[in-house]
Design a protein around this nucleic acid. Structure first.
Length: 450
RNA sequence: GGCGACGUGGGAGAGCGGCUAUCCAGCGGCCUGCAAAGCCGUGUACACCGGUUCGAGUCCGGUCGUCGCCUCCA
């Protein structure tokens, strides 16, 4: 169990994970709002935090990963109206799509995936605590957090109140005492087809409060890691941090971990910009192996550009793992492997540096190829397993059809006779059937073209 | 305008004050009937200008550029 460090947005530093209970780590990662199918940008935090969990478990930590699903939201109401169906039905459908789409990644599921709609009692209790402590006030059916009552507001996203734009808000602003205040509870408005009873009348929770409530419910306070996209740092996470600390007198979390944005055509991929590519489509187009390799090719905090070239490069790079598979045998790895194995996990322990870790894995492949003969797979399998890429090492026992077998036999005959023209023609035919011929010292082998 | 991040060889992408990252592509070689795969070798890379230092992509200051947040957003 090595010391693991992560970048913390609050302190701006890379700091060690210090569990409340030895060996246990709780992670809360903000998930999507389900008013449409998720895109690649939404998939990044899912991948980052799922793989982080796998790594922590590899290091023998007992991990609880919570990734919420926001199923109550203005955009859901709007999308439901457009789709002509009840908002909860739309949210249910999209939540199912979200689970199915992310399942296709094959990197495991979070331990808990709470819904806002299931957490209403806890949300109301938290709001009541805020009102009691003088950090929130009810106003004509709404409840707002009084930002100026909380002296630490802005500390997470490193901004001062006076630096915030305070332009005129939309509707409801006249119910706020201060333009900076944000809604904890919103009264039901005409056209909204769902509402929950509360001490302030029928309505629904604001966006930020649900995460404070769900995180506390499932992980307690002052838990180890809270994550999400960097675009959530302000105002979402700032507000979460403020709510919990103002209500409970304890920090929400110990480390704030933010992943960089996925970009499309030099611009942040987002539903509001409209430049999205659905995860589902990307999985169809490139496959989960390439997609995971793509995400791991860059450090999680850096922005990454999404395009065909990058995905093709990711797909090409993992061919090296497939290529070494046939010389692997199930047994401990040679002595030279130890240093690379250690470097791989040291890299992950150092702010989850997946590109550095991958470099060690590639170096391992080179050493194995250089060594020649059979090589014990244990260490490489251990490394790739953490990234959920160990499947690349399964030798593809794709069934060679009788037709291909015959062609290969004919080609060997032709080669034996020195009839290179015919041999090459047969190789082309095999290629047309989807097989690549590789002549080796033990005779020819067929590999499926990928 | 405010706050922050980043700018590395043809492309991607790590990196530490002094040592070959790695992947894709190119070039040369080995191997091969020819290929493929693999291996070996190869590219005066660190936006620009100053400064600190015996020595700086690696620290400090400035300039330019890109991006993110400041409103819903992973």
């Amino acid at each position: 169990m090595r010391e693991i460090k992560l970048h913390d947005t609050l302190s701006g530093q890379v700091i060690p994970i210090v569990p409340r209970l030895p060996g246990r780590v709780g992670i809360y990662a903000c998930g999507p709002t389900v008013y449409g199918r998720i895109h690649i940008g939404n998939a990044r935090p899912f991948v980052v935090f799922s793989l982080l969990k796998r790594f922590l478990e590899h290091e023998r930590y007992q991990v609880t990963l919570v990734a919420n699903i926001t199923d109550i939201n203005d955009k859901i109401y709007a999308a439901a109206v457009a789709a002509g169906k009840p908002s909860q039905q739309l949210a249910d459908e999209m939540a199912s799509h979200y689970v199915a789409d992310t399942d296709r990644l094959g990197i495991g599921r979070p331990d808990h995936e709470p819904l806002a709609s299931e957490t209403i009692p806890e949300i109301i209790a938290l709001i009541e605590a805020l009102i009691e402590h003088g950090h929130a006030y009810a106003s004509d059916g709404d409840v707002y957090f009084a930002v100026r009552s909380y002296e630490r507001y802005g500390e997470l996203s490193h901004r001062r109140l006076e630096d915030l734009d305070q332009g005129e808000d939309g509707e409801g602003s006249h119910r706020k005492r201060d333009p900076l205040d944000f809604a904890l509870w919103k009264r039901q408005k005409p056209g909204e087809d769902s509402a929950w009873e509360s001490p302030w009348g029928p309505g629904r929770p604001g966006w930020h409060i649900e995460c404070s409530a769900m995180a506390e419910k499932l992980l307690g306070l002052d838990f180890e890691i809270h994550g999400g996209g960097s675009d959530l740092a302000f105002p979402h996470h700032e507000n979460e941090a403020a709510q919990t600390r103002a209500a409970r007198g304890q920090p929400l979390t110990r480390i704030w971990m933010h992943n960089g944005m996925v970009r499309l055509a030099q611009e942040k991929m987002s539903k509001s910009v409209g430049n999205t590519l659905l995860l589902n489509s990307a999985l169809d187009a490139y496959g989960r192996d390439a997609l995971i390799a793509y995400f791991c090719a860059g450090h999680y905090r850096q922005p990454i550009e999404f395009n065909d070239e990058r995905l093709a490069a990711a797909a090409a790079s993992i061919e090296r793992f497939r290529g070494v598979a046939e010389r692997l045998v199930p047994s401990p790895s040679p002595a030279w492997s130890a240093a690379l194995h250690a470097e791989f996990f040291d890299a992950l322990a150092d702010d989850f540096n997946t590109p550095r870790a991958l470099a060690a894995a590639f170096e391992w492949v080179r050493q194995a190829n250089r060594a020649g003969g059979s090589v014990g797979d244990q260490d490489l399998r251990d490394m790739l397993g953490v990234l959920a890429l160990d499947n690349l090492l399964e030798t593809q026992q794709a069934r060679v059809g009788a037709e291909a077998e015959a062609l290969l036999r004919d080609r060997e005959v032709a080669r034996g006779q020195g009839d290179w023209g015919r041999a090459d023609a047969l190789r082309d035919e095999l290629r047309a059937l989807g097989w690549e011929v590789r002549d080796g010292p033990d005779g020819p082998r067929l590999r499926p073209l990928s």
